[in-house]
Design a protein around this nucleic acid. Structure first.
Lengths: 344, 344
DNA sequence: GTGAAAGCGCTAACAC
DNA sequence: GTGTTAGCGCTTTCAC
């Protein structure tokens, strides 16, 4: 049987004072006598008092919950972002309520429409890759709910956003390939229309442009974000008329998929075909050859998103901010031509 | 500015009926006229009514929140468990509130002690690996909060628990090594005192016993659960007087660490030293040679834990249950001796 | 079948 | 500095 928890009434009764005083003492209001406060605090600890968030939430019109909508958490990037979010939330006594969309727009819409707004102080969201309509998010914002987007942001909605530097990251990736001696560079990426993939694609084109290197439409392949997509894209590239000598993958999982597919086709990764990814997933150090990549500040993205959201929650007129965090190059074996690679 | 959301009062006013009726209509009580209900439902959708969980929670003494306490989420196993939990929770209209301990007992204790019990209907917990005192959990249970442990369970606390079959999984792992021709088998495992590691250790000994194979104390190394721990343990094994010809690692990350360390020492994994892990983390297919392992039903553990917890929440006298889910062998390259392995 | 009213635990005027 | 009281949105007796 569930126990009744201690309430401020209990404390008031024990001390023979009113609940108002107890409430004030508990919340460090200044208009309460120090000794009274001490007594209240003592009894509170003794009785193991814990505030009832439903009650405070009801009267204050605020809960200490923030929702997090995310496509999946079973990968390095997203789970690390969540860890960052959680860190800030915990430090500020906010709970995070997790909603996983499985990267399905239907799930996303269902979840957002069913959100009990009155039990949420704010929302952190990363949209699913196939989402086209964003009215469900716009509705929330119109209702006054603070929303901060991260990673996969919605360009058309005016609110705070936190991203890594996709354009420059991609530029660096392609530049690295070029400087390592590759000049037939393909790009395997995610679905069209996502700002993140668009920016990386733009970075890819910009680098090629700057170095006067040709690109062909069949060298840019749009598909999903998974390892399997990476394998399939690589195979497609191998089977084409013009076979590239390097692949820039939109993320590490696709890069790993590509590496695995290339190896299966007896192609020496690095030597014959260079591969570079994006993320700095721990697998990039495990795969052989190890994967060069653009490191994303996943944890910091989590921190920053949550901090921004808290600001929106606290100041009702905090102006929307777009934060772009730097990504950085990590060179490993998969983009090295000359060296004879260690076996296995 | 945050909007005021539609309440049952608004609906009542529009329809000129009482809030009581609205409340009843909304919850499918039978004692309300069908046409009244229809009108209420219509207005509710029109006004985009969403119940205020703080209010229902207050009066029903129940929120629809369940807490999840977990050491970390940035690995395959835990993030998959969470995904399973989330699946069941979402289907049953429960929110999950995530607490990450970073595998630190201090964090765990702080989090548990600060839990606002009145805003939680139940708790799912996986203890951190160094936790010795469990009174903070026992207190919750004594207070009547339904708690279900998963994976790393607390042996001394009477409540429902969900685990994989650690003993038989370990037995299978070691048996596989033996049958593949290895007979100097080491075990690198996690901290002492955790039921999970104890059971795997027991399975290790049982298999050795059954096949009449010797073990030496220096072949059983207790350390942490990380890849780095795996590397260090492997190095220690290589530097010892008796060098084993096979390593059974408590999880895949440690196994991968061991493989990397062995490769760095020019040891042919599989051929010279066999390695088997536990989990079936996707990295086990990426590392080269690919890693044999015991697959854990992570997703199912999440599902089952959450289902059990919901039963406890719904029936106040649901008896505690211990569920052990099967693990299964997946053989890959790291335990194959004869075959000449593909390079890189 | 429906309404009036009390109350869940807490905060915030408003008194004194 | 402290008490009284109304009320947050909802459910639930108890009348009628």
């Amino acid at each position: 049987m569930r126990k009744r928890y201690t309430t401020i009434k209990d404390i008031a009764r024990v001390l023979g004072i009113s609940v108002a005083t107890v409430s004030r003492a508990l919340r460090d209001s200044y208009d309460v006598r120090p000794e009274t406060r001490k007594k209240v605090l003592d009894v509170a600890t003794e009785l193991n008092y814990k505030p009832n968030f439903n009650a405070t939430g009801l009267v204050r019109q605020s809960t200490h919950n923030i929702g997090v909508i995310i496509p999946t958490i079973t990968n390095y990037y997203f789970s690390t972002v969540i860890t960052g979010i959680q860190e800030v939330a915990q430090r500020n006594d906010f709970n995070i309520i997790l909603y996983i969309t499985n990267d399905s727009p239907e799930n996303e819409i269902r979840i957002v429409k069913n959100l009990s707004l009155s039990s949420l102080d704010g929302l952190l969201a990363c949209v699913s890759s196939q989402t086209n309509f964003y009215t469900h998010f716009q509705d929330l914002i119109d209702d006054g709910l603070p929303v901060v987007f991260f990673d996969r942001v919605v360009p058309t909605i005016h609110t705070s956003k936190v991203m890594q530097d996709d354009f420059n990251g991609a530029f660096m990736a392609v530049e690295t390939l070029i400087k390592s001696g590759y000049n037939k560079i393909a790009h395997i990426t995610g679905p069209k229309g996502l700002q993140l993939t668009d920016n990386r694609l733009l970075g890819y084109y910009a680098a090629l442009d700057q170095y006067g290197i040709a690109s062909y439409p069949e060298w840019v392949i749009h598909s999903g974000f998974s390892q399997k997509d990476g394998e399939e894209d690589a195979l497609k590239l191998l089977g084409g008329e013009r076979v590239p000598d390097a692949i820039f993958a939109v993320n590490d999982r696709k890069a790993v998929g590509a590496i695995l597919a290339l190896k299966r086709n007896a192609i020496k990764v690095g030597e014959e075909i260079g591969v570079i990814g994006f993320t700095n997933d721990p697998i990039s150090e495990i795969v052989s050859p190890t994967l060069s990549t653009i490191a994303e500040p996943a944890y910091e993205i989590g921190l920053k998103s949550c901090e921004l959201l808290l600001k929106h929650i606290r100041k009702s007129h905090f102006e929307a901010q777009e934060v772009i965090l730097e990504s950085r190059l990590i060179q490993r074996e998969s983009t090295i031509r000359s060296i004879s690679r260690q076996s296995s």
